[in-house]
């Protein structure tokens, strides 16, 4: 994955900072942690918020940490409501930060999320290199 490091840096000459958070009350954090590590290994600077974050926590941290992408992981089935709140808060603040969602997301819900303005949805089985690729594309938005 070292090629990504170079490529990502070449894009702008700086290390991109991304946020990874578990939204809602769900505690399944294996995916979030694995993705955070993969992004770090790929050259991103990763701000990892951990479990039990509210939409407000996520948006506030995204602003404070000045991140280029927000990565959200949800496996509790509450993705539509929670992500909608995040997107709404971002809009209210006039922020255009791409949001990537991962977790147990039924395909038809993935379409709904994209319709809300989510940049990409990564369901179960998505390979790390594909996730890294998505974040890499997202920072250039």
């Amino acid at each position: 994955m070292s090629t990504y490091v170079t490529e990502v840096r070449q894009l702008s000459g700086r290390r991109f900072r991304v946020l990874i958070a578990k939204l809602g009350l769900d505690g399944h954090d294996r995916g979030a942690k694995v993705i955070a590590r993969a992004l770090r290994d790929a050259g991103f600077e990763v701000v990892y918020l951990g479990v039990h974050q509210t939409p407000d926590d996520v948006v506030r941290a995204a602003v404070e940490e000045d991140v280029s992408v927000i990565g959200i992981s949800i496996l509790s089935g509450s993705h539509l409501e929670l992500v909608q709140d995040v997107v709404k808060l971002l809009r209210e603040r006039g922020l255009n930060i791409p949001v990537v969602v991962g977790g147990i997301i039924p395909p038809e819900d993935a379409d709904v999320l994209r319709g809300l303005g989510v940049y990409e949805v990564c369901g179960p089985g998505t390979l790390l290199r594909d996730v890294v690729e998505i974040f890499k594309r997202a920072v250039t938005v």
């Binding site: 009350l25 769900d26 509790s76 409501e81 929670l82």
Partner: peptide
């Protein structure tokens, strides 16, 4: 330990 009328519980009632 949150009742279903707690705001933090809002979206998660009955989900998992």
């Amino acid at each position: 330990g949150l009742d279903p009328d707690n705001k933090l519980a809002w979206y998660e009632v009955g989900k998992v």
